[in-house]
Write a protein that binds this DNA or RNA. Structure first.
Length: 274
DNA sequence: GTCGATGTTATCAA
DNA sequence: TTTGATAACATCGA
């Protein structure tokens, strides 16, 4: 589900709401979600204080006192909910954090693709070292991005979705950025002229920044912590806009499949670099 | 009832 | 090296 803007939004809200509160107990309802093991997670986090929540690519990193870490990947439908008291749990809640202030932090995931990793400090460092994840669009420099693109033979859309190349982009924002910079998703990355690659880079940053400002895009069930929807979906110019007129040329937005993903384009405005 | 699609990604085969 | 198919799973809409 969530891409960089949604995960960034969630991280910021989680940080604000959880900072300095203490975990009394962790209840794991669905064991497979916790890949490092439910017992270990419970032991690790019992009595731990939230110190920081940040985003790495599309993943969330929770830092606790006493050198403990929790990494969460939301995949398609993972979400965090804030709940006070002991109201009945919503459907698909797989992990519950009982906090010292009486509140509960819930992890809900309809499709159960998301996962938790619980680490000690050294384990976390090891995990980070082995992590094959590229810089996100705010970390990499324009020059570097353009250089990297020019060396690749693969198609631009799957490349932008490849988290080891650049992290944080997903299907929505790739379609929007390619449209904004006039590049067809089937273009060979290495054949995109440098000037247009720079346009692409700028479009990616601009679109992500704007989406973060609007707390991301809500398509079906992504919601931020306050159970509010993001608003960026109202700004989508091509994503899920097939059949509607292109804002630039008025011709129909088309939908095709690229790398197994639904892909939305204006074939007239987006140039194919073979 | 059935089929295809859904914001992600790991894995395997061609 | 690159690609495509498949799988993990639940839900929705046609």
């Amino acid at each position: 589900m969530p891409e960089l803007p949604e995960v960034e939004t969630i991280a910021r809200q989680l940080k604000k709401i959880t900072i300095d509160s203490r975990v009394e107990k962790v209840q794991v309802k669905l064991n497979k979600i916790v890949r490092t093991g439910p017992r270990k997670l419970a032991t690790l986090l019992k009595g731990a204080c939230f110190k920081d929540v940040r985003r790495m690519g599309k993943q969330l990193v929770f830092e606790f006192d006493r050198d403990r870490f929790l990494v969460v990947h939301l995949k398609m439908t993972g979400q965090f909910l804030w709940s006070n008291g002991d109201a009945e749990l919503p459907k698909h809640v797989h992990v519950v954090f009982l906090l010292n202030d009486g509140n509960r932090l819930l992890y809900r995931d309809m499709r159960q693709f998301g996962y938790f990793l619980g680490f000690s400090g050294p384990e976390f460092a090891l995990w980070q070292n082995n992590l094959d994840i590229g810089p996100d669009p705010f970390q990499i420099k324009e020059k570097e991005f353009v250089n990297h693109l020019s060396t690749r033979k693969t198609r631009i859309k799957p490349l932008l979705l490849d988290q080891s190349f650049i992290s944080g982009l997903g299907n929505i924002y790739v379609d929007e950025a390619l449209y904004a910079s006039g590049i067809h998703p089937l273009s060979q990355a290495g054949n995109i002229p440098a000037s247009q690659a720079r346009d692409l880079f700028k479009a990616i940053r601009r679109i992500l920044r704007e989406a973060i400002k609007l707390k991301g895009s809500t398509i079906q069930n992504y919601m931020d912590l306050e159970s509010e929807s993001g608003q960026y979906q109202n700004k989508h110019l091509v994503y899920h806009q097939q059949g509607k007129p292109c804002p630039t040329c008025g011709r129909e937005i088309e939908k095709m499949v690229v790398g197994g993903r639904g892909t939305h384009t204006c074939p007239h405005c987006q140039k194919l670099f073979k």
